[in-house]
Amino acid sequence: MTHAAEAETHVDPTVPGGPVAEVEDLDVEFTLRGGLLGRGGTLRAVRGVDLHIGERETLGLVGESGSGKSTTGRAMLRLVEPTRGRVRLDGEDVTAMGRGDLRAARRRMQMVFQDPYSSLDPSMVVGESIAEPLDTHEGLDRAARSARVAELLEHVGLRGAYAQRYPYEFSGGQRQRLAIARAIALNPRLLVCDEAVSALDVSTQNQILNLLEDLQERFGLSYLFIAHDLAVVRHIAHRVAVMYLGEIVETAPTDRVFDDPAHPYTRALLSAVPVPNPRRQRERERIILSGEMPDAANPPPGCCFHTRCPQVMDVCRSVAPPVVAAPGGGTVRCHLHT
């Protein structure tokens, strides 16, 4: 796979009429259950996240497990309730919506989940699963409903006749196609893909990524593409946001992030990706991070990355760095650039 070559074919999209999705100062806190007598604390899984995704744009959201990227995606769809901040979809405030408005808004924002083996109900034929959004929002008659299901199956590269099959009859890649068919059934504006290809093998990953790109083109979709695999993100994303311990530490167009990472954490992440050229692989510098990600319930003072940063300075231990413009485009949250 030549991700590098393909990534260059992406044209950075211009954004007409404002972003499709906007996230402002998003916070998500979970209440921890205490022990037998202890009172539970709170865990800030997402801390002051700002994002925006343009029309037909794919924003890659990367980070280690536990960095809060999935929670960010779920909070944008209000599958978990944000504690603070705003999420706007086409300028409408999703966070302020009541139950009825939110239900109606769900047709414009859908999700593709990581595990294609558990995201389809094993007790019903896949056509029923795909028709579920139609049943909830459109109330089509029988004929129109099954015609639409067959059409959706064709859109994702499956046969319309497969509607009467059970999920266990499909492979992982086929199931992920089914999940995508369900997600695009209502012509949404925003699709949150939560590790949508992580459970698949590499050749299947590539097919699903191509399918997603194709659908984006045809239906004008915007993606929040959550992943930990940087090669995958480089392939599909126009812009990348890097998360660490609930904060976005760097965001920029994909090529800038991969060619000239501004944040030490991004550099460390990138150095962990093997390079196809053996000579370059041997010559390049590997940055090994020491220790583990700090406990999110008890984040370190100052910069959240200072406990593992190879370029840590005194100021990092006490003062949280502001978000500043990074050289070459995008923003970074690091004292090296202030």
């Binding site: 239900r103 109606a104 769900r106 558990s118 995201s119 109900d121 959004p133 909830t136």
Partner: peptide, 12 residues
Amino acid sequence: TYIEASRSIGTG
């Protein structure tokens, strides 16, 4: 996940 998927669709 299929329960969360169903909820994310807006099913009651």
